[in-house]
Design a binder for these strands. Structure first.
Length: 838
RNA sequence: GCCGGAGUGGCGGAAUAGGCAGACGCAAGGGACUUAAAAUCCCUCGCGCUUAGGCGCGUGCCGGUUCGAUUCCGGCCUCCGGCACCA
């Protein structure tokens, strides 16, 4: 075992030694038979890009601290690691470097596993999960077929987001400001036949059960809530004027404005538009308008800044309440994908309708008057608020809008003119990708039998390796005849395989379940083990997954529960979203050229220093500003602790009795102070770490070190001979080492061994403090006159209020400040402050 | 536009059931040790004035509640994030 301070603090040697020890002794292997309460600590698994970056260091340092802390606090830990190993970069590498994606990926995994090893992370590597291996992705296929059987996976032709650079489809969640989330290319719209997962079936539950996620950051829940976008309203049928048996159905969230309708608008791509214009004078004009809108880029045409335009269709509808003739328009601002694709336009009370009506000179009818009764036509903008009173609204006149909503809904439903309805903004999740390096979608197209799933017993559908990677043209799997050709499982006639692969977010939507039994062969996971470990107690990852991964994982968890494999309906009990690593005012990234290489840091300062710095520099959920000097500060701290424990630790005492309050009760005040400080530090570090305030926990450790170092420095030789002092000081140092160990685990082990204990420090119990000794013996009392500080004095803790008052009033500075003004009142805050009001 | 979050020294950040603003660290300045440098150790460190005892100001801005406000309330400003023609 290396001597931790023979030649100064030598992190390299210490760390290599203890990493070897942990590996050899399987220190972090999950104990399946433990009676302790379970704790599942999970960090989002990385994409194996080849090298770890500071963002990885940060998230894994946080996760590892929590795992080690919770282990010492008496929990049985599941703390696994794996690889989100499918994805486009592997394919790009194949095109550029002519390396097969599998080879490239597995090489990267090996390199990154070694890097994580050098950080000393406490994973059970026996549970490693790699999504690109058949023993994992076969269960993607299995889950897909189960979803297909339940109608949760279905095919539809539709307009999809297409990234021309990645040459693949993107989910709505993967389009950021009209750009590809991965490569920032402009996304275009394309019509394709695609596989979708029916996440919308779970919209309501995703919304309502989010309320139970009290361990999640509020803002993540809010983002998901907005993304799901529930709105309740009313559908109303408007019969056509020339075909009274047919009608157009609109959706509105403002039924109170139903009497203010002056026209209807239908989306240009709506299938009902063509029969509407057939044979009308306007037919040709409308057709060319439809063509024009089709040509437009969707992300541009749906932007708010585009001017509203539209056209009269020549057709009229009949208002179901007033029986007036209402002209029907088609307009670019009406979305086909939301609601019924047809809206009722109320220009007086909707800004978009107002702009349209103003532009085309359409009538505006005021049906809600504001509180001040000050609205008069013509309006300068729509009155959209919901406080006021209904006017010109037939039998509903005089009601306030809220009451009117209810009354009109009731009336419409009773008369059979429509029904109340809820719509969601959330769309189904398109998972087809025209790429190679992903899970093959296990479907077969047969001319006789149609779309047939691969029988479960034939899984996995393996990715073929006879693919030329040109980087051009069609889906790579189309170029593998051996893959495409298959016999129909039903009729045995020649058929053709689906050549699209799955979105890699499919892989990561359930990997946390695979960890509970990663070698299971009969099921995606062992339901008994899942029942034992799930839900994940603490999940840690970046805020960038607030919607994408976290929503998909919640959806999968509900589907898997409905398949009867688990009882849980939410996967992650507590969520910590850590901030980014920033340097020179920008997120660290290769493209910005501001990266700090973790390998270099570990070589230069050691893993412990790197970890302590990243935990100390900022609270976990905030961005961390990189500072080279800050790393040196962390290094200095660990060096000092190492030096002190190595050089100053008193010899072990023969007494077996642990150091408790009774031991120090008659000791010198200095010895008592050390004991008090030890108790106080245990309390502080425990509480701060529980609250995930790692930066202040480390501050507490630093203060403890500073205190001990001064104590030792100020002690005379005779005092150092005192046996109680030695016992208490040794106990303090032992506690310091134990408390520091989850933050700087290698140093913890080294010093623990130096103190004469057997490894591993990671397996010992977290210290408990004595509450009677966490408070200081004396307190400093602040004296204010009229809220301004005049003086301070030291008093024994718990001194009587009257005594405090007397002491304060007899202070010369206070007497001067009061002068001969009469005292009105004296506020005394126990053991803290006295405020004399004159 | 709508919905969130945040504004504290030169910097990262502490402190809020209302009670000493700036813990801890970094940087900076001074000193000790050293032939010298690095490392290490000690001291100073919000701003302004000062007769060296103090005095005034200070947590984005303006107001309010209070003996007392970084903390609570009202109104603004700025920055960051999410959504965005969702009817």
């Amino acid at each position: 075992m290396p001597n931790p301070f023979e030649n100064g603090y030598q992190p390299k040697e210490i760390e290599a030694h203890w990493q070897g020890y942990w590996k050899e002794h399987q220190t972090f292997r999950v104990n399946e038979n433990s009676e302790k309460p379970k704790y599942y600590c999970l960090e989002m698994f990385p994409y194996p890009s080849g090298r770890i970056h500071m963002g990885h260091v940060r998230v894994y340092a946080i996760g590892d601290l929590i795992a080690r802390f919770k282990t010492m606090r008496g929990f049985a830990l599941l703390h696994p690691m794996g690889w989100d190993a499918f994805g486009l970069p592997a394919e790009n590498a194949a095109i550029k470097q002519k390396v097969p994606p599998a080879e490239w990926t597995l090489k990267n995994i090996a390199a990154m596993r070694a890097q994580l090893g050098k950080l000393g992370l406490s994973y059970d590597w026996d549970r490693e999960v790699t999504t690109c291996l058949p023993d994992y992705y076969r269960w993607n296929q299995w889950l897909f077929i189960k979803m297909f059987e339940r109608g949760l996976a279905y095919q539809k032709e539709g307009t999809v987001n297409w990234c021309p650079s990645c040459e693949t489809v993107l989910a709505n969640e993967q389009v950021i400001d009209g750009e590809c989330w991965r490569c920032s290319s402009q996304v275009v719209q394309k019509r394709l036949n695609q596989w979708f997962l029916k996440i919308t079936d779970y919209a309501e539950e995703l919304l309502s059960s989010a309320e139970t996620l009290t361990g999640w950051p509020e803002r993540v829940l809010l983002m998901q809530k907005n993304w799901i976008g529930k709105s309740s309203g009313l559908e109303v049928h408007f019969p056509l004027d020339d075909r009274p048996n047919e009608s157009l159905t609109i959706f509105t969230t403002r039924p109170d404005t139903l009497l203010g309708v002056t026209f209807l608008c239908i989306a240009p791509e709506h299938p009902l538009l063509l029969p509407l214009i057939a044979g009308k004078d306007q037919e040709n004009a409308v057709l060319s308008f439809i063509e024009k809108i089709k040509q437009q880029d969707k992300t541009v045409s749906t932007s708010l800044t585009v001017e509203k335009e539209g056209l009269f269709t020549g057709a009229y509808a009949i208002h179901p309440l007033t029986h007036e003739k209402i002209p029907i328009f088609t307009a670019n601002f009406v979305l086909m994908e939301y609601g019924t694709g047809i809206i009722m336009a109320v220009p007086a009370h909707d800004q978009r309708d107002f702009e349209f009506a103003t532009k085309y000179n359409l009538p505006i009818r005021l049906v809600i008057q504001n509180k001040a009764q000050s609205l008069v036509l013509p309006l300068s903008e729509a009155f959209v608020e919901s406080d006021g009173v209904l006017v010109s609204s037939n039998i509903f006149t005089g009601l306030d809008p809220d009451a009117a909503k209810k009354a009109i809904c009731r009336y419409v439903e009773k008369e059979g003119l429509g029904q109340e309805k809820i719509y969601y903004r959330l769309r189904d999740w398109g998972i087809s990708r025209q790429r190679y390096w992903g899970t093959p979608i296990p479907m077969i197209y047969c001319e006789t039998c149609g779309v047939v799933p691969v029988p479960l017993s034939n899984l996995p559908v393996l990715l073929p390796s006879d693919i030329p990677f040109s980087g051009k043209g069609v889906s790579p799997l189309l170029q593998s005849p051996s893959f495409i050709k298959v016999d129909c499982p039903k009729c045995q006639k020649p058929a053709r395989r689906e050549t699209d692969t799955m979105d890699t977010f499919f892989d990561s939507s359930w990997y946390f379940l695979r960890y509970v039994s990663p070698h299971e062969t009969g099921n995606p996971f062992d339901p008994n083990q899942a029942a034992k470990w799930l839900p994940v107690t603490q999940y840690i990852g970046g805020i960038e997954h607030a919607i994408l991964h976290l929503l998909y994982a919640r959806f999968f968890t509900k589907v898997i529960a409905d398949l009867g494999l688990t009882q849980i309906r939410e996967p992650f009990l507590n969520l910590l979203t850590q901030g980014m690593v920033i340097k020179d005012n920008a997120k660290m990234s290769k493209s910005k050229g501001n990266v700090v290489d973790p390998d270099h840091l570990i070589n230069e300062y050691g893993a412990d220093t790197t970890r302590v710095f990243s935990l100390f520099a900022a609270p976990p959920e905030k961005d961390l500003v990189w500072s080279d000097e800050g790393v040196q500060g962390a290094s200095r701290f660990l060096t000092r602790v190492c030096k002190m424990v190595y050089e100053q630790v008193p010899p072990a005492c023969s007494s077996q009795e642990p150091v408790r309050g009774e031991v120090v009760i008659n000791a010198s005040s200095g010895t008592k102070a050390i004991y008090r400080m030890t108790q106080r530090t245990i309390k502080r570090v425990t509480e701060d770490t529980e609250k995930f305030c790692f930066n202040t926990a480390i501050s507490g450790l630093m203060e403890f070190y500073n205190f001990l170092s001064h104590e030792i420095g100020n002690r005379s030789v005779e005092e150092k001979d005192d046996l109680t002092y030695q016992r208490v000081l040794r106990d303090a140092m032992e506690k310091l080492v134990v408390l520091i160990s989850p933050f700087a685990p290698h140093l913890g082990e080294a010093l623990w061994a130096h103190l004469g204990h057997l490894p591993s420090i990671s397996q010992i119990s977290w210290p408990v403090y004595d509450p009677a000794w966490t408070e200081s013996e004396t307190v400093e009392v602040v004296v204010q006159v009229n809220g301004k500080i005049k003086t301070k004095f030291i008093e024994a803790a718990g001194t009587d209020e009257e005594v405090l008052k007397k002491t304060a009033l007899s202070d010369p500075k206070v007497i001067t400040a009061i002068g001969n003004l009469p005292i009105k009142k004296i506020f005394v805050i126990k053991s803290q402050l006295i405020n004399i009001v004159v």
